Simulated scan of single mutants.
Amino acid sequence: MTPFSLRTARLVLNQPTLADVDDIARYCADPVFEQYMTTPWPYTRDDAIGFIEGYVADGWAEDREWTWAIRDSDAGPLLGVIGVRVPWGMVGYWLGAEHRGRGIMPEALGAVIDATFARVDIERMLWECVVGNIASMRVAEKCGFRYTGAQPGQVRARDGEQSASWTGVLGRDDNRSPKPGWP
């Protein structure tokens, strides 16, 4: 798949570049990443380079994962990253600490959901996070995912094991308003 950009009222989702390496390395060194993310730990500048040149580039080239940098303008600084594992519609995302709490991620996730349903023949999108990651859970809830419980996660932890995860699903034709039943 050729990478494509997305736009919302306030955001541009485009490709992470080597100019983002220092921001990625700094954001991913936040202790919250050790607890809730599958990124390498401790996270280094070399990990950020490998992420951009390998993981992101290969994901697009193989049409298995679409990954975007979240920015407030085309050439703006990196605010965070969002992606979707295309074959099964699993979304994942993170923001740098200073950008959290501003409604950025629900806006970005809405754009990714729309783009995925428009381009991929899947009937549902999936979300999961490590149990306790309330910020990620609230984003999924705001975007209309239905909570499906706590269970072993599909995305493997750093050690290769399945994490205890909160999970959710959003159908192609589902109403995007928040659903009851979230912890």
Score class of each variant (00 low, 15 high):
112 V>P: 01
52 I>P: 03
130 V>T: 13
124 R>P: 00
183 P>Y: 11
159 D>A: 10
170 L>R: 01
164 A>L: 14
37 M>Y: 12
91 V>F: 06
164 A>N: 14
109 L>Y: 09
106 P>M: 12
133 N>F: 03
90 M>C: 01
67 T>D: 06
136 S>P: 10
52 I>K: 08
101 G>T: 11
115 A>K: 05
132 G>N: 05
179 K>I: 03
52 I>G: 05
162 Q>T: 09
4 F>E: 07
33 F>L: 03
11 L>P: 06
17 T>M: 14
83 G>F: 02
52 I>M: 09
84 V>C: 14
54 G>E: 12
65 E>M: 10
6 L>D: 04
127 W>K: 00
58 D>T: 11
165 S>E: 05
40 P>T: 04
3 P>K: 12
132 G>M: 04
83 G>D: 14
63 D>Q: 09
175 N>L: 08
109 L>W: 05
49 I>Q: 09
181 G>H: 14
19 A>F: 07
77 P>I: 06
122 I>S: 02
15 Q>F: 04
149 G>D: 07
10 R>V: 01
71 R>Q: 14
117 F>E: 02
161 E>N: 13
87 P>T: 13
1 M>W: 12
169 V>Y: 00
58 D>M: 10
97 A>C: 06
36 Y>C: 03
124 R>L: 00
63 D>H: 09
141 E>Y: 04
177 S>M: 06
116 T>I: 11
161 E>L: 09
151 Q>K: 11
116 T>E: 04
112 V>D: 03
158 R>E: 05
86 V>P: 02
147 Y>K: 04
18 L>F: 15
88 W>Q: 11
68 W>Y: 12
117 F>C: 03
4 F>L: 08
70 I>C: 07
20 D>T: 11
78 L>K: 10
71 R>L: 15
96 G>C: 13
174 D>R: 00
74 D>V: 15
107 E>K: 00
15 Q>S: 15
85 R>L: 08
145 F>T: 04
163 S>Q: 13
182 W>E: 09
4 F>R: 12
4 F>T: 11
114 D>R: 08
182 W>A: 10
134 I>L: 09
79 L>P: 01
18 L>A: 14
69 A>C: 08
63 D>W: 03
171 G>Q: 00
153 G>S: 04
87 P>C: 10
44 T>H: 09
18 L>P: 15
172 R>E: 06
89 G>V: 05
27 Y>R: 00
83 G>T: 01
90 M>F: 01
140 A>N: 07
176 R>D: 07
105 M>H: 08
87 P>N: 11
17 T>K: 14
36 Y>D: 03
72 D>E: 15
134 I>P: 00
151 Q>P: 02
48 A>H: 14
182 W>R: 08
146 R>L: 03
179 K>V: 03
140 A>H: 05
31 P>C: 10
107 E>T: 02
130 V>R: 10
149 G>M: 06
10 R>P: 02
179 K>H: 07
96 G>N: 15
98 E>F: 05
99 H>C: 07
138 R>G: 05
93 Y>K: 08
1 M>E: 12
159 D>T: 12
14 N>I: 07
27 Y>G: 01
155 V>I: 11
52 I>N: 06
169 V>M: 00
163 S>F: 04
141 E>Q: 14
166 W>M: 03
45 R>L: 09
157 A>P: 00
60 W>C: 07
89 G>I: 05
118 A>Y: 06
60 W>N: 08
81 V>M: 05
71 R>Y: 14
112 V>Q: 03
